[in-house]
Every structure is written in structure tokens, then in C-alpha cells.
Amino acid sequence: MAYSEKVVDHYNNPRNVGSFGKDTPGVGTGLVGAPECGDVMKLQIKVNLETGVIEDAKFKTFGCGSAIASSSLATEWLKGKTVDEAAKIKNTDIVNELKLPPVKIHCSVLAEDAIKAALADYKEKNASAAAPVASK
């Protein structure tokens, strides 16, 4: 199977690999997938608590090249988006951008799940403290 150029690029030059401290204020962490399924993604967002904008995002992925590329792309897209905007990222956007073949669609689904999980974690941690931000 040949990989699309964009998958190869993200694999060779993954954007935003790394971790934030889980308990840092404004950080939301999503850990999805399972080792026995062959892919696990950890995706983290760092939200500016005053503006509600995602200022930084990081990932680590155990999985195939397409899984790595999907999560790398997701972190790129998350940066600069508000929490609400981020929730609108769909797996099909990732499929189209990376030209993923049908057998790799689950990688994009996992990336979307990771985004949602990170957002949910952020919201849960900041439900009391940062609730006013979302309503403005």
C-alpha cells in the first residue's frame, strides 16, 4: 500500500509530539484506543482560561503511520480554535486532508474521539472554575 504524501510528511515530521502535565490548569487530556487493537492516541489541549482558545496541543500515538498522521494533523488544527470550534472537527475532514484509504478510516475516527475526549476532560476539570468563559 502506498501512503499519501501528507501521511508520509506527518509521519516523518510529526507536529506537536509531546505531553503537558495533566494537572496543569487549562489542560485537557484524551487517551483513546487500546493496545490490543494496535492503536492508542493521547491528545492534549492547553486552553487559555480567559479567552477559551486552544493555545497549544500535543499528542503521542502508538499506531500505524496513518494513526500518527491523523493525530499529528489534529493537533495542528486544534491550535487557535476555541473549544466550541474544536468540537466541530470531524473524522471525514481528516480523511479528506490525508487522503486516507478505506482501511485507514478508523485512524481518523480515533483522532476525532481523542479530540472529543480531550475537550470533555478539559470541560470537566474546568466546569466550576471556567464555566463563565464558555457562555461569555
Partner: peptide
């Protein structure tokens, strides 16, 4: 990363898709 932090991967409740 988890293993290096000393976390046993078997103790994590994985959310499979």
C-alpha cells in the same frame, strides 16, 4: 511514556473505539 512513569498498562481501562 506510561510505562516509564511506572504505570502498568494492564491496569488502565482502555476505551476501544
Amino acid at each position: 511514556e506510561l510505562a516509564k512513569e511506572g504505570i502498568d498498562l494492564k491496569t488502565i481501562k482502555w476505551k476501544a473505539e
